[in-house]
Design a protein around this nucleic acid. Structure first.
Lengths: 133, 133
DNA sequence: AACGTAATGTTATAATATAACATATTTTAA
DNA sequence: TTAAAATATGTTATATTATAACATTACGTT
């Protein structure tokens, strides 16, 4: 049988399932805890699954939180650039769709820097939390 | 004597000196290693100095590299928003002074998100490395 | 079937960061 | 000017995040 491009292995699917059903970004050891009933026993199994999922763009890492989040978009361009809005009150994370890259590319060119990719983490208060306060 | 706003303690100054003379961002344990001849003996002493320096805007953390860099600007607005250009070849880091915050603030408002601060890490190739390759 | 590649399982350890507690120093203010 | 409050220090231990190393298994390709 020829391999479907989006076929995931058991561990990869297990980790992705957890992330997709999570409301907030999860830390690796939280994922480990949640997946122990499904056969994942060691940190490395989580990290390996995460590495692959990030590589294919299904998952992103939020660097300032050492946390991981499933990508909600149809197809992210393979684990490169990311832009997030992070609510400081409820931890909700929204991923911005990426036309913002061209802006950074121009800004970079202005100082003779060849843009390759970026990571943007914007902190603030989400709409829900604003209304409730 | 009344306290000068920019007076630093011994450990804080030691850590800042190391960062200011470094060409690339440094990791906390690299700072520890470099400051051991100057009386700093434990990781916590480094982290505490870093915390303070970050708080007053003298140092920034580069989240995607778990590294720290001295701020070259006159006065950064107290450890809040940062924007970096990071060379993938030589690790040179340039901090963008530009008022990119207002752009993010607008983009955020478009989706009903109240901007508070941001962290931007742009990867690419710096001018020097471009010329040499 | 035999090979090459990728994924797995497992143990150990590296790298990054904080907790807890005792002490010392500086600032503030009565 | 001194006592209280706040800040910084020193030190040991430990928590958190992530990777190394190595043996094994699954699986697509030829």
């Amino acid at each position: 049988m020829s391999e479907a491009l989006d076929s995931l292995t058991k561990n990869q699917q297990t980790v992705l399932d957890i992330l997709e059903s999570a409301k907030e970004p999860l830390k690796a050891y939280a994922i480990l805890f949640d997946t122990q009933k499904k056969g994942i026993k060691a940190p490395l199994q989580v990290y390996r699954a995460l590495d692959k999922l990030i590589e294919i763009g299904k998952v992103h890492k939020i660097e300032s939180k050492n946390s991981y989040i499933a990508c909600k978009h149809k197809s992210c361009d393979a684990g490169t650039s990311t832009s997030f809005l992070i609510c400081e009150m409820c931890d909700l994370v929204t991923e911005l769709k990426k036309n913002i890259s061209s802006y950074f590319s121009k800004q970079s060119a202005d100082v003779n820097f060849s843009y390759s990719k970026h990571n943007l983490e914007i902190y603030g208060i989400c709409n829900n939390c604003k209304r409730e306060n």
